[in-house]
Design a protein around this nucleic acid. Structure first.
Lengths: 136, 136
DNA sequence: GGCCAAGTTGACGTGAACGTAAGCAAGACG
DNA sequence: CGTCTTGCTTACGTTCACGTCAACTTGGCC
C-alpha cells in the first residue's frame, strides 16, 4: 500500500500536519518532495526528515537550526569544509540538548516535590474552608 | 547589599532580560512587583518566580502554561477546587516534561551516532576531494 | 463539454513574545 | 532653573511559524 510515495494528503494524515505546513517546510528547504507534474510526492527520505523536523520542534529548535542539523543526516552533500561545519553545528546542538536534558531532570524533581507538597496541603484543607481567610 | 528589593535595572542585569520583558510578564500576571510610587520593586519572591519563568521558557512552555504552574509554587492562594485544579495542571506538565525527557535521551543518542558517522566520513574524505563527485 | 475535487501559487492575516519609539513624571545635580 | 537619568505608559512594529483565502490548473467522470 503505497509504501514508497505519498501524496500531500496522506502525509498530512500520517503526521498530523497541514498542507500549508509541508509546503512551508519545503519553502524553507527542509524537505524536497518530487514533483510529478504539478503535484508533490513524498518518499521515505522525506518522511524520515519530517519526523526529525517535528521532533526538533518539540525540543524548541528553530526551523533554521533543524535545517542545518538535517544536513548531518544527509551524507555526501558537500565538501570537506562543509562537512566540518555541519559537524560543528551539530556539536553545538548536542551540547544544547545535553544541557536541556540535565536541566529538565532538575525541574522534574522539583516539580514532583512541589506536587507532593500541594497534595499534602489539599488533604489538609477541610472541605468547607472555601470562604476562610488563609492566614489573616 | 540590596538583598531584599531590586529595581527593574538591577533585575535586567541580574537575569539578562529587558525592562520590556519584565513589564510584559507583569501584564500577563506572572510576577507582581511592589509599586513604590510609580516605580517597581522586585523582592526575592519575584526573583524566584522569574527563575522559574525563564526555565519554563527554555522547556518550550508558553507564558500561560508557566503562569498556571506558578500557582503551584504560591501556596494558600485558593480554595480546595482551585488547588486541585492546579495540581491537575501540574501533573499534565510533569507528564509533558517526562515525555520530553525520554524523547530527548533518544535524540541525543541518535545525534551522537550521526556525529560519529559524519566524523568518520570526514576522516575518509581526502583534502583535495572538494571537486569530486561523491558516488556517481 | 461541463463540473467537481484535489492540488498549486501568492498574498495577506494571526498569535505569541517581545522590540522600539514617543511622550510624560519625578528625583538628583550643578 | 534647566536638564539628565530612570522609569512609566501607550501604541505600533517585528519575527517565527504557520492559517486563511482567492484565483488558477489538472485529472476524473458522466
Amino acid at each position: 500500500m503505497s509504501d514508497e510515495l505519498m501524496t500531500i494528503r496522506q502525509m498530512c494524515e500520517a503526521f498530523d500536519v497541514t498542507p500549508r505546513t509541508l509546503r512551508f517546510y519545503e519553502a524553507r528547504e527542509l524537505i524536497f518532495p518530487e514533483r510529478r507534474g504539478q503535484h508533490r510526492l513524498y518518499d521515505r527520505r522525506d518522511r524520515a526528515r519530517l519526523i526529525l523536523i517535528l521532533r526538533g520542534k518539540r525540543f524548541g529548535f528553530s526551523l533554521e537550526q533543524i535545517r542545518q542539523l538535517l544536513e548531518l543526516y544527509e551524507p555526501g552533500s558537500g565538501n570537506r569544509a562543509q562537512i566540518a561545519a555541519t559537524i560543528a553545528i551539530a556539536r553545538d546542538r548536542l551540547d544544547d540538548m545535553e544541557r536541556q536534558y540535565a536541566e529538565l531532570r532538575e525541574a522534574i524533581v522539583e516539580l514532583k516535590s512541589q506536587l507532593t507538597d500541594a497534595e499534602t496541603r489539599l488533604a489538609a484543607v477541610p472541605d468547607d474552608a472555601t470562604l476562610e481567610q488563609p492566614t489573616g
